[in-house]
Design a protein around this nucleic acid. Structure first.
Length: 818
RNA sequence: GCCGGGAUGGUGGAAUUGGUAGACACAAGGGACUUAAAAUCCCUCGGUAGCAAUACUGUACGGGUUCGAGUCCCGUUCCCGGUACCA
């Protein structure tokens, strides 16, 4: 056994031992009485190479999982592969290898990299979403949703990404460009599959209140995304027509102030008017072009044009002109709005620009308002509103909405920003949508006994249309209902479908009977701690919450027991930066985890990523910092030298050392229980190391305390640097491997002090320190303060006005000249 | 625009939630050991004044509350995320 710290050798040895001892497996044994804990990290896309963001994510998760095991929990800590997706197809085109081969090869590589890091996963539960045993259940659920009308096919204007050759969900369009390839999306009208997430909008919104273990920021982002607003739907008549112009407003109290209407360029009314008006047609064309150019939106001027059509006010019967305006969006509400320039800033600006009338119908509760200068957008009191005059806004909203309802010209209405989830993709490397199109029966769900619809894995993508479109063996089938020749659906699922339920599948990953096992769900779900990047705050986390509810409603588990939310606590980790910016290949500022592990070992890499920043903040990569982490481990290692060394010098302060040991245990434990401030926990362990280094064990009590300290240190290091901790523990002669040793308990008696230090302040300024008996009262403390020369001089010639004693902390003396 | 979150030494970051500001580390400087280097160990390290003990000052800026404010309140500036021209 070498006396030097040889990371590579040590890490290989302990990884083998852990595997043999099977310490990372989650137990499904009903006789296991341990409390369960489910710690989950976001599974990776198998790109082939682990990057620092993964390393950070998985080191955080591993620290939590290992700590919980040491605390006696039966821990589920699984990993797998989000294995469908576009990069596999692109690689296939480039290297002329089938996507499956590329994907499975990458998985093997990345699995080896994860294992090299010493992460404590239950590898027996590993899943890959591209395997039919996995995606068949997603297909199964989809057919259930079709039965319930929650999955449907519809022609819709959708976001199309040319390079990706597919449609995108609204959530996948970020700032007008594709979330994956950054190219602007185009609007296209296509027949697509949707899942009715809007049917769950209310529950998705209200359940956000249950997520007390989530960062408020993420909850807020989801709340905004769902975008609930309450108001009224109002039906305006149209002059010389039986048709109506329906709008949604959150301010029905301002209805009497409507002076014109505005519709989106895509609104049927505008389209129709344009057929006989070339200038208008040109304007609509301009609007449709602008809307695709996202960069222009910010600077976009508010423009409009009259349609030459009049709407009829539902209450007054007055005629108001209908305009088309470039700021009205076809995709929200009804694509038309009522315009009240007096009480809406945008309408005000528009009215000023085009000389439209401004009619004030709300007055401030107090004071005057120059309605010509600016819109009054607050609530107030109704004026010039006929029967509604004098009502305050909130009452007027109800009164006007009721009037509309009674006269069948409107109703109260709740509007969401959330749109249904577009789940079909015109891609090859994805889960086939389990539908057969029959000439006579239409779109028919594939029956359970024919599931899974297996994706042929031997096709070669070319970059154009999906190769499935040319695969006759896949394409041609018979209708499950009438038996006549029929065609399979050739689109595949959005890959967010797979990642939306994997957390539940891990509870029974090999289950061939059902999507999940209800008992396993009861045992493990929901996830106690989920850890991953904040970039998934809306996309993945919203879909996963939705899916969990769908699974509950499909009767797959008991919602009363498991709950309606999949993740109890969420930790969103910050990005890993280099030179102040995100690491990326194109910037050439990446740091390869492999290189760090080869040079310093996995433990150093783990330690640095946990120590350099608090988990939720960005982590600036710093090579010197990595060396510092490595230096710390060597410094701990050298503590072994003093273990049995005979010393002829005097013993150190045993009591002070034991105080330091147990204060550290308390601090580190607290870090694990409260918010995972591992950077602070590790700093505390460094302090303990410094204390141990400056301690000189001579007598029996001193040696015992020293050993106690080093053992506690080895134990507490185990969640962070498990190989190192095990090796250290073994050399200390500890009974069990450090990673399975019980977490150390605080010895309260070691923290008791007979004498304590008090900071003494005069007028709130620190002037000295005194040592007093631990339960010293104000009089004793004052006497000690007066006895201290440095403090006494501040009291000289002064009259004590007030004394504040904070027990165990400080003594503040307020004085004034005598 | 709106909604979040921030601003603490040369740097990353601490501060038991109102009680010693700068823990721990990185960088820098000085010293010891060494033929030399590496490694290791010791010291200094917010600013100003001083040989020093020490004093004053200091947590983006301006006010306030309090015996006491990095922490609470009001206002301002800047930075970072998110987003919806959302009717």
């Amino acid at each position: 056994m070498s006396d030097r710290y040889e990371a590579q050798e040590i890490e290989a040895r302990w990884q083998k031992q852990w595997e043999v001892a099977a310490i990372d497996a989650a137990s499904d044994d009903p006789a296991d009485s341990r409390e369960t804990y489910y710690c989950l990290v976001m599974f990776p896309y198998p790109s082939g190479n682990l990057h620092m963001g993964h390393v950070r994510n998985y080191c955080l998760g591993d620290a939590v999982a290992r700590y919980k095991r040491m605390r006696g929990f039966n821990v589920l800590h699984p990993i797998g592969w989000d294995a469908f997706g576009l990069p596999a197809e692109n690689a296939a085109i480039k290297h002329h290898r089938p996507p499956a081969e590329w994907t499975y090869g990458n998985i093997d590589q990345m699995r080896a990299q994860l294992k090299r890091l010493g992460l404590s996963y239950d590898w027996s539960r590993e899943i890959a979403t591209c395997r039919p045993e996995y995606y068949r259940w997603e297909q199964w659920l989809f057919t259930r949703l079709m039965e319930k009308g929650l999955a449907y096919q519809q022609n819709a204007e959708v976001n199309w990404c040319d390079p990706c050759h597919t449609v995108l969900a609204n959530e996948q369009v970020v700032d007008g460009v594709c979330w994956r390839c950054d190219t602007p999306v185009v609007r296209k009208n296509l027949k697509q599959w949707f899942i009715r997430i809007t049917a769950y909008a209310e529950e998705l919104l209200s359940d956000l209140d249950k997520l007390t273990g989530w960062p408020e920021k993420v909850v807020g982002m989801q709340r905004n995304w769902i975008g609930r607003s309450t108001g009224a739907e109002v039906s305006f008549g149209l002059e010389n027509s039986d048709a109506t112009l329906d709008i949604f407003t959150t301010r029905p109290d301002t209805l009497m102030g409507v002076t014109y209407m505005a519709v989106a360029a895509g609104h049927p009314l505008a389209q129709q008017a344009a057929t006989s008006n070339p200038a208008l047609a040109a304007f609509l064309d301009e609007c449709s072009r602008i809307s695709t150019k996202e960069a222009d939106v910010e600077t976009m001027e508010k423009k409009g044009m009259a349609l030459g059509v009049n709407a009829i006010h539902p209450i007054t019967g007055a005629l108001v002109p209908v305009w088309v305006a470039n700021f009205v969006l076809m995709g929200y509400g009804t694509g038309a709005v009522m315009s009240v320039p007096a009480h809406d800033e945008r309408d005000h600006a528009f009215a000023k620009k085009y000389g439209l009338p401004i009619r004030q119908v709300i007055a401030p509760h107090a004071g005057d308002w120059d309605i010509d200068a600016a819109a009054f957008t607050e609530v107030g009191k109704l004026i010039d509103s006929g029967a509604f005059d004098g009502l305050p806004s909130d009452e007027a909203k109800v009164a006007i909405t009721n009037w509309l309802a009674e006269n069948e010209k409107g109703a109260e209405r709740v509007q969401y920003r959330l749109r249904d989830w577009l789940v079909s993709r015109q891609r090859y490397w994805g889960a086939p949508i389990p539908v057969i199109h029959c000439h006579d029966c239409g779109a028919v769900a594939v029956p359970d006994e024919q599931l899974p619809v297996v994706l042929p894995t031997d096709l070669q993508p070319t970059g154009g249309a999906s190769p499935l479109t040319e695969c006759d063996a896949f394409r041609h089938t018979s209708c499950p209902r009438c038996g006549k020749p029929a065609e399979r659906e050739l689109d595949t699922f959005d890959t967010f479908m797979e990642s939306s339920w994997y957390m539940n599948r891990y509870t029974s990953p090999r289950n061939g009977e059902a999507m999940v096992d209800a008992d396993a769900m009861k045992r493990w779900a929901p996830v106690d701690q989920y850890i991953g990047g904040v970039e998934h705050a809306v996309l993945h986390l919203l879909y996963a919450r939705f899916y969990h509810k769908l699974m509950r409603d499909a009767g797959l588990f008991d919602g009363e027991v498991v709950g309606s939310e999949p993740f109890r606590n969420l930790l969103t980790q910050g990005m890993v930066l280099k030179d102040g910016t995100k690491m990326s290949k194109s910037k050439g500022n990446t740091v390869d985890p492999k290189a760090i592990i080869e040079e310093f070992g996995a433990d150093t890499a783990r330690l640095f990523t946990l120590f350099a920043a608090p988990p939720e903040k960005e982590l600036e990569w710093n090579d010197a910092g990595v060396e510092g982490a490595s230096r710390f481990l060597k410094r701990v290692w050298r503590l072994l030298e003093k273990l049995d060394a005979a010393s002829d010098t005097a013993d150190g302060d045993v009591k002070a050392l034991r105080f330091s040991i147990h204060a550290t245990i308390r601090k580190v434990t607290h870090a694990f229980e409260q918010g995972f401030a591992f950077n602070v926990a590790i700093a505390a362990l460094m302090e303990l190391t410094n204390s141990l280094h400056s301690f000189n064990p001579a007598c029996e009590a001193g040696k015992a305390a020293y050993r106690e300290g080093v053992e506690a240190l080895a134990t507490m290091l185990a969640p962070f640097v498990p190989h190192f901790a095990c090796e250290l523990g073994e050399r200390l002669g500890m009974a069990k491997m450090a990673v399975v040793t019980d977490w150390p308990a605080v010895d309260e008696s070691a923290l008791e002090q007979n004498e304590i230090m008090l900071v003494v302040q005069i007028q709130g300024k620190k002037r000295g320190e005194i040592t007093v008996p631990k339960d010293a009262g104000q009089d004793v403390a004052m006497a000690a303060a007066r006895a201290d020369a440095a403090i006494a001089r501040w009291l000289d010639g002064m009259q004590v006005v007030k004394v504040i004693l904070v027990p165990g902390r400080l003594l503040n003396i307020v004085v004034k000249p005598a």
